[in-house]
Design a binder for these strands. Structure first.
Length: 565
RNA sequence: UGGGAUGUCGCCAAGCGGUAAGGCAACGGGUUUUGAUCCCGUCAUGCGCAGGUUCAAAUCCUGCCAUCCCAGCCA
């Protein structure tokens, strides 16, 4: 169980195959490469989400399978957006997901000195220049998708002047946005990224790693490929939107003096139905108070899913099932739920919890008698052992498990009929007790004492329902989570906040759970039989305040039958 | 509209010139002290469309069509 949370423990009898692995296989076979080195390069400007999980699984997974290593590198080139707290949360999430990065955590900022030197090299070679166009002017000069841009009036400055200006930029002589260092490539390129992209800009901001040492910062395009090369990355795997940047990635590495040229390969992002993965929108959910934070169990963040009760193994399994291609796709939620159920079905201990209690008095059972029953923690896995449950005269069942009358399809308790109490006896309902308003407040039943562990003689109970003994149960808060959005593609909505599912969280405060659940530890997972999978809340659950989050329901074919009629 | 990419079952996805894997979903049926699990079975004469090459095409060629990405001193 302890190693089920590391990707190393994964049974690798089924070898994943995808176009990236095919490229690597060919590179190794042809001798183009002799090793495999990858990296996961998040920007510390938010929490990691399910989309990042895909990138993590691909990068760390490939490194592991090819006996290589994967670096964790914070792409921290924009101090205006980055925070140390995010960096810390990201590292925790990667670790929790079960992956180990090579050596120390890396930072693009670790290479700022070398990056500066490479910029100087470009200037000296005459392929970079300091440009004084304002941002608006630069936009005008850039042209459009269909029209070429035109050269900046500062494009042909002398090398010495560029060097002087660049050093003065570094010295803090200019204001943010007033001046920038640009690569001299081709203002008429049909690829807009090649129209003299900015490689250094002024940002008088405090950096989480370098403090106030710098007031100029390299841009992503200039930084990323060079950082990869410095680290000896062989295959730089990223998402589709960087495809147009690949010529730039290659241009920098061809124009500086460096002996490593990683290959950038792009794959499509993971899109999941009923969820959103835009950091901006996720941030809005947090700031608008729609959810209680980045790690709210409804969030598609790694920490949110963790708190929801999804295991790292289930998330890894899900990612593996979605595949790696260049096709823009959107995966159905049922695929994720399948992975989660498969993992929890195997590993979660069983327990009984009554969400909406209805009192049942067993009229023929002795008033003060209490029976101890050894119930299996997992009916299909005896090795998981037993738990002790208690049976007594007054028990609680779920309100949904009783009907005064019903057709033969209803396999629960009905007035005058019998039903099996899970792990215990068969009971028959004799009478309904109502309050002044006519609400059912109690059931009077007869228990067949000859049915513990064996079938009753002469009749067949209609089904099996769960229960707890009233005086041998504990109160608990149970949070029923459902999908956050009620449309498949919230990102396509005019205002995605309008389609937040009003029932994404239903909190049950008066549930009753079996005694053994009083010993649940935070993050421990259970199957509440006939209800679903739940986990003790990572932060709010304690021995005297039981709080369980519903991870996912059990598959429910009854709901389909019911919906049909 | 310039450039870059992508189109195989409802959703993913193998396939790489020799006659359409697999998973999820769905739908039947069996087992069952969880309407769960498990087990069996059904589910593309068809690979965006139209031509062409070939004994043979999802795979090669040509032309269309659709969708996604790019005009931050964001990543």
């Amino acid at each position: 169980m302890s190693d089920s949370n590391t990707a190393d423990a994964e049974a690798s009898n089924v070898k994943p195959t995808n176009f990236i692995r095919n490229i690597i296989d060919n590179d190794l076979e042809s001798g183009k490469r002799t090793n495999v080195q990858t990296r996961f390069p998040p920007e510390p400007n938010g929490f990691l989400h399910i989309g990042h999980a895909k990138s993590i699984c691909i990068n760390f997974g490939i490194a592991k399978d090819y006996n290589g290593e994967c670096n964790l590198r914070f792409d921290d080139t924009n101090p205006a957006k980055e925070e140390a707290a995010y960096a810390e949360a990201i590292a925790n999430d990667v670790e929790w997901l079960g992956f180990k990065w090579a050596g120390e955590i890396k930072h693009s900022a670790d290479y700022f000195d070398r990056l500066f030197d490479y910029a100087v090299e470009l200037i000296e070679k005459g392929v970079a220049y300091v440009c004084e166009l304002s941002m608006e002017e630069m936009r005008d000069y850039r042209g459009t998708l269909t029209e070429p841009g035109k050269n900046s009036p500062y494009r042909d400055r002398a090398v010495a002047e560029n060097l002087d200006l660049f050093n003065r930029m570094k010295a803090g002589e200019f204001e943010d946005g007033s001046i920038a260092l640009r690569a001299k490539i081709d203002m008429s390129s049909p690829n807009i990224n090649l129209r003299d992209p900015v490689i250094y800009r002024i940002k008088k901001a405090h950096h989480i790693r370098t403090g106030d040492k710098w007031c100029i910062y390299p841009t992503y395009d200039f930084t990323h490929g060079i950082s990869d090369a410095i680290e000896g990355i062989t295959h730089s795997l990223c998402t589709l939107e960087f495809e147009d940047h690949r010529p730039l990635y290659d241009w920098f590495l061809e124009n500086i003096t460096i002996d490593c040229h990683p290959q950038q390969i792009e794959f499509s992002r993971l899109n999941l139905e009923h969820t959103i993965t835009s950091k901006r929108k996720l941030n809005l959910l947090v700031n608008e108070g729609v959810v209680d934070g980045w790690d709210d169990p409804r969030m598609p963040t790694i920490s949110g899913m963790r708190r929801r009760g999804y295991s790292a193994a289930a998330i890894r399994d899900f990612i593996g099932r979605t595949g790696v291609t260049k096709k823009v796709h959107t995966v159905e939620m049922s695929l994720l739920e399948n992975s989660v159920r498969e993992d929890l079905g195997e590993n979660a201990g069983r327990a009984m919890a009554v969400l909406n209690p209805l009192k049942v008095t067993l009229v023929n059972y002795p008033d003060d008698k209490v029976e101890s029953i050894q119930a299996p923690i997992h009916p299909q896995k005896e090795s998981m052992g037993k738990r002790e449950i208690f049976f007594s005269k007054t028990i609680l069942i779920d309100q949904a498990d009783f009907r005064e009358s019903a057709n033969k399809k209803y396999k629960r308790l009905v007035l005058g009929k019998a039903v099996r109490l899970r792990n215990a006896y068969v009971i028959t309902c004799d009478e309904i007790v109502r309050d002044g308003q006519g609400n059912i407040v109690e059931l009077l039943c007869t228990v067949d004492l000859n049915t513990l562990g064996k079938n009753p003689e002469g009749y067949k109970p209609k089904g099996v329902i769960h229960w707890v003994s009233e005086s041998h149960s504990k109160p608990a808060t149970v949070r029923l989570y459902d999908r956050l959005f009620n449309v498949a593609n919230p990102a396509a909505e005019e205002n995605f906040l309008d389609c937040v599912n009003p029932e994404c969280l239903v909190e049950v405060v008066d549930a009753r759970v079996e005694l053994s659940l009083g010993e649940a530890k935070p993050e421990q997972v259970f199957q509440f039989e006939r209800e679903g999978y739940f986990c003790a809340d990572r932060y709010q659950h304690s021995a005297d305040n039981l709080v369980f989050n519903r991870t996912v329901t059990l598959r429910d074919s009854w709901a389909k039958i019911e919906a049909k009629s």
